[in-house]
Design a protein around this nucleic acid. Structure first.
Length: 292
DNA sequence: TTCCAGGTGCATA
DNA sequence: TATGCACATGGA
């Protein structure tokens, strides 16, 4: 995708491939604020303000990303991927499978401008442990409180805590911040992160990466998939949560075979979408949730 | 009051 | 291997 980058600003004019509302509100990230039509997003110890630029007819013509960390947010927003090609490839997969792709088209149209973010690894791991059996508003609230109470004061905002800062948080602290029964999972996860070698993890196969993540008490198949998708940008995974389960039962499943296990649903969907699983998963999740 | 949310661990068969 | 239940919390 085309974009112009300078010292403290990135300008995006291809608005078919970038829609900040859809990118941030589609459920992949929890640390952002909406200010009018503009957004501020926080990642690790960095922030970016995304301004919507309109013409006289009140139509969006571009976005500007204001940040001191242009390189970081170029990668964060996945700006070097062409999402028009991604969408074409998803639809090709459907036709190759001789698949009724009408609702897929609808979901992709609805979520136009979604991009799969490259989020901070540890922040994503902690956030998605909190996410289990929880709703997005509460997840956002808990993550924000963790930053405010234990992260470094950056002036305009609080950074996500470093590993050293995370180690100081007790199970009782997490409970006080509303984590509920996940508090002990969080403490266990942080203990795991102390011995975690992120570089060697990135060089492992998907299968062994899943093994590593699933060995942590509190990380199951769905959270592991979310971590691999949203932190490590692995598009071969298909996180199946309650919304994707609904999508599957409504559109994909043979009406005679209802209530497949989430594991089986994941198998079927990754078989259809292969290396584009992560992308289509996000469009479908956002589309299904919008129906409420 | 009950149900639900970007589920998981554990006991049981 | 698979199924069923408990687990915190707050909003609808």
């Amino acid at each position: 995708m085309d974009y112009q980058i300078s010292k403290d600003k990135i300008i995006i004019t291809d608005i078919s491939q970038f829609n900040i509302e859809h990118i941030l509100e589609c459920g992949q990230v929890f640390r952002y604020k909406k200010i009018g039509e503009n957004y501020v997003v926080f990642s690790k110890d960095k922030m970016a303000q995304i301004n919507v630029i309109k013409n006289k007819q009140n139509e969006i013509i571009s976005y500007e990303i204001i940040t001191k960390n242009t390189d970081y947010f170029t990668h964060y927003f996945d700006l070097n991927t062409n999402y028009n090609k991604v969408k074409d490839n998803i639809l090709k997969k459907c036709s190759f499978q001789n698949f009724d792709n009408n609702f897929i088209k609808k979901a992709i149209d609805f979520g136009y401008g979604i991009r799969l973010l490259n989020q901070d690894h540890f922040e994503t791991i902690i956030s998605f442990v909190i996410s289990q059996n929880n709703n997005i508003k509460r997840i956002q609230k808990i993550v924000e409180e963790i930053c405010q109470k234990f992260g470094t004061d950056m002036g305009e905002f609080y950074a996500f805590p470093t590993l050293k800062q995370l180690e100081k948080i007790s199970e009782q602290d997490f409970k006080q911040m509303g984590a509920g029964y996940r508090a002990q999972y969080l403490v266990d996860t942080i203990k795991f992160l102390k011995t975690f070698d992120d570089t060697s993890f990135q060089n492992q196969s998907l299968e062994s990466q899943l093994d590593v993540l699933l060995s942590v008490k509190g990380i199951g198949p769905k959270v592991a998939d979310c971590i691999l998708l949203f932190a490590y940008h692995n598009m071969h995974v298909f996180p199946v949560d309650t919304w994707i389960e609904k999508v599957y039962n409504q559109y994909f499943s043979n009406k005679n075979i209802q209530n497949l296990s989430r594991l089986k649903i994941r198998q079927n969907l990754t078989q259809i979408f292969g290396e584009f699983s992560g992308y289509i998963q996000q469009y479908l999740f956002y589309f299904q949730r919008s129906k409420l």
